[in-house]
Nucleic acid binder design. Structure first.
Lengths: 238, 238
DNA sequence: CTCATATCTTGACGCTGTTAAGTTTGTGGC
DNA sequence: GCCACAAACTTAACAGCGTCAAGATATGAG
């Protein structure tokens, strides 16, 4: 069933409601934000009744979970592509994935907000979990590579919880992620609004990120490379 | 009016509904998150009818705006207190405010989520704006101080928008903020859940933050101090 | 005491997510 | 080709939501 997508609006069956709902949801999220997001509104845009989506996604959380999974896949694919491009052009791989992360957030703010929003997803969903771990695995691999560790392509899915409990690189990994994620979310959510009031202000902030923040990040990681193992905070007696 | 707060539940007038609503709201936010937040639920906990809050806050957004303002004040006070303590004990001031930021987020996740959530606040509210700029001003001051710049106690409220358009320290400021904010939000929102599965896992993450991430942050800023002005990302030809 | 005013309640509106039951459509077995 | 079945969708209904208008009640100033 549903092989022919040309059923279209006129007929009783939509034809590809699943995809249409996802697109509608992302459109609503992108233009109205999390607050204005409504399942009924999405159904309206897709041209179906409010109860129609239930068959495909169960409920609202199910729809969001599917979108979040796509969001993780976006991140994974963009980061992998960025790494490939960095290898080709001789650029820094870690810098490449940091920029790719922000680029994804800006390109599809709807998806990104769902992934890292506070809407509540179906966290036990297996597809979501795999997609998340895949994306995170890329970050781990590239950070370790930047640290000079040899990475053996371990499957994170088989790692015991808690992840990286005794990994000496955990600090570096979370540092990279914090900077990248922090800047991306603040930019997406408008917390940096006061800095981008003039025309093309957002572009200038992205440039600042690419040219300076990522540079600071790399410098910090490189410093860790020189002195492997935990780096003590010199201002604490711990 | 409302001088005697002992009116209590029995009487027609609550006595201090404004405060009661704020507390109820934060309790709901802390235990149910943004998704389960409801004005009616808050009114229920405060023991009043659903329409009662309207007189004090206008509407739901008004309540959230007040809470967000308190959240900014929390941040400001905690950071100032941390600076004072750092001065007293000889610790690093910038490290102190980074740790204070996370501490506030963990201590009052309800407020913190409202401040930086995606719920939509009354952004033109003057109190909110002032509180936000005050908190941000502390971050700016301490970052500039760490960079060795002399800070003349400028009032950010009078700065023209966009803020810091040509400030050479903007990158450092946003870097510090990104790390601190990124880690705090990820921890609060459970994105770091896989790392804290065992008992007292959150404490270990906080320790990692204090002892290593903040250390990396300081190292990056110090490096900037040595080489003032914009720091080029060495892996880009910009 | 009187009465304006601030505070809270009641009742209603349209909206939401979700469910149950019924209707239409496509598909595989014959 | 036909038919039964399953999938996809609709309609109708439910409780709960935010908000508003109108009415009730308490407070404090005169």
């Amino acid at each position: 069933m549903a092989k022919d997508k040309t059923l279209g609006r006129g007929s009783y069956h939509h034809g590809d409601l699943r995809q249409a709902m996802i697109e509608a949801a992302e459109a609503v999220l992108a233009e109205k934000g999390v607050g204005g997001f409504t399942l009924r509104e999405c159904a309206r845009r897709a041209g179906v009744s409010p109860a129609a989506p239930a068959h495909h996604f169960g409920n609202l959380v199910g729809l969001l979970t599917v979108i979040a999974t796509l969001g993780f896949d976006d991140l994974s694919e963009a980061m992998e592509a960025a790494v490939a491009e960095a290898i080709r052009s001789g650029g820094d791989r870690l810098a490449a994935i940091c920029e790719a992360y922000l680029a994804v957030a800006l390109a599809r703010p709807g998806r990104f907000r769902v992934v890292f929003g506070r809407l509540g997803l179906k966290n036990e969903d297996e597809n979501l979990r795999r997609a998340g771990i895949r994306a995170f695995g890329i970050l781990v691999r590239e950070t370790k590579l930047a640290l000079g560790r040899q990475t053996e392509g371990e499957d994170l899915l088989t790692r015991p919880l808690p992840l990286f409990a005794d990994d000496p690189d955990l600090a570096a990994i979370l540092f990279v992620w914090s900077v990248t994620h922090g800047f991306s979310t603040m930019l997406i959510d408008g917390q940096l609004g006061p800095f981008e009031m003039q025309p093309s202000g957002r572009e200038r902030l992205c440039e600042l990120y690419s040219k300076q923040l990522v540079g600071l990040l790399l410098a910090a990681v490189r410093q860790m490379t020189a002195r492997p193992g935990p780096l003590a905070n010199p201002c604490r007696h711990g």
